[in-house]
Nucleic acid binder design. Structure first.
Lengths: 251, 251
DNA sequence: AATTTCAGACTTGTATGGTAGTAGACGTAA
DNA sequence: TTACGTCTACTACCATACAAGTCTGAAATT
């Protein structure tokens, strides 16, 4: 049957797109780095065409920037984009939570509880990558429970802008388990139909996503777009906490 | 210079993508219609490769569906998608309006007023296509005024899902001029920093986008995904008003 | 008549050669 | 030293050829 066949889910182009997306979000390829079609083609032992198509899709996601006849580069991190994306994501998530509190699809409850258990586990062992994956799934499940079967596309599109920063800042079991607690609180509030509480918790949950942003930017200015901060737009307060000065190098 | 160079803005592929996007949104190509790479290539006198790349981008926008080795088809209209998109768009627009009421970039005021005048003109002459274009620009200007420089991407992505329906239902000067009045009201409320009024007006403005949807679906069921309406999700009340039974044919 | 098989005419996916445009090194001249 | 052409080695873009999967329909079989 294969009803939900993604566009050529088995094709080289699709596979490459996913692989490159992962590598970019995981910061294995630094923001601003060059991505030559030719080089990628030989590295993955495929022709240039699938590479090209993968890059086009990534450009549509704003993860790379194709400059014609010049080169293709991993998009730099943009403060204004991230702040906007965070704000818009909050708007979307709150709309979802509201609906979820009105009517929730109870058949999803077991799946969500299993998901929360996985979160706990990954947090315990500090497996950030696995946690982020399950975290995304949690938010998608909330959306589905609230009756939003397609919102995850918009949501994931917005999340993409902040995922790279989260990869850097979600370090250590303490940070992760704090997030799990927030998730459990939100889910409980939804099940209890406590809309004001649920929205308040979700707001708090999303608020400190960018707390560490200034620190990261300070330590790695070459990753960021230099932009006049004319647009403050809910600028997060500078965080004083120390951030591990990890530098990411290309594989 | 060319700082904001869109990815290959002059390329054949980009040009084709825009052309096909327009044709699909304007319903010149019916939902469900087949789009052969070969056929498009000969029609526009280009090779298959740029066509292919254009279709990939359109698939990323959910405007077409590529089924490997089978064919490429214009996406069907989906009730659930449209309802969700409308709801999410409202969430985003309200978030923007809130910010706009807090602090608005006054340098944009002349541009917006000029835009409103254009709306009035297009409405007067019943030029729906021009109106829709200027309408989109109005909402983008509001976003920019509120400090959102990138939100238009998310916004336009959500709008895409309902644009085809709006093309069918925005008929006649009376409907259009009503929308202009709503726009003027919203903008005035923003300038006067009347947040509750502004959000209320925006809510009303967006609420009846899908009013005519059941009628359209009744008259052209072949354009729609057949879906169990298990997800009612703010189902709009069936409208009794007569809709011109216009059938759209391929060019 | 009903079912299976198989050949062919499609479809999209991939590989590769060639083209036009860009950037940077280099030499030359002021 | 600085400014300005030229040349060369890149780049993404496009066209073409080939490969592989899918559907259709007619012919062979039951």
């Amino acid at each position: 049957m294969n009803y939900f066949a993604a566009p050529s889910a088995n094709s080289t182009a699709h596979w490459l797109k996913e692989e490159l997306r992962r590598a970019i979000v995981e910061m294995e390829i630094a923001p601003g780095a060059r991505l030559s079609e030719q080089e990628i083609a030989v590295r993955y032992a495929v022709s240039r065409q699938p590479v090209r198509e993968a890059l086009i899709s990534l450009a549509n996601l704003n993860l790379v920037e194709i400059r014609p006849q010049r080169g293709t580069y991993v998009s730099l991190l943009s403060l204004s984009r991230m702040r906007e994306a965070r704000l818009l994501r909050e708007a979307v998530e709150l709309a979802i939570i509201k609906q979820a509190c009105k009517a929730f699809d109870m058949t999803l409850v077991p799946e969500i509880e299993a998901n929360l258990d996985q979160q706990t586990l990954h947090a315990k062992y500090g497996d950030r990558q696995a946690f982020q994956s399950v975290d995304a799934q949690f938010h998608n499940l909330l959306a589905r429970g609230g009756g939003f079967l397609h919102a995850m596309e918009t949501l994931n599109g917005l999340k993409l802008h902040t995922d790279r920063i989260c990869k850097l800042t979600l370090t250590g079991p303490d940070v992760l388990s704090r997030l799990v607690d927030q998730h459990r609180g939100i889910f409980a509030a939804v099940l209890n139909r406590q809309e004001p509480l649920a929205t308040e918790l979700m707001h708090k949950h999303l608020s400190d996503i960018l707390s560490f942003l200034p620190t990261v930017q300070m330590q790695n200015p070459e990753w960021f777009h230099q932009e006049k901060d004319a647009q403050k737009l809910n600028a997060p307060p500078a965080q004083k906490l120390a951030l591990p000065p990890r530098k990411v190098s290309r594989g």
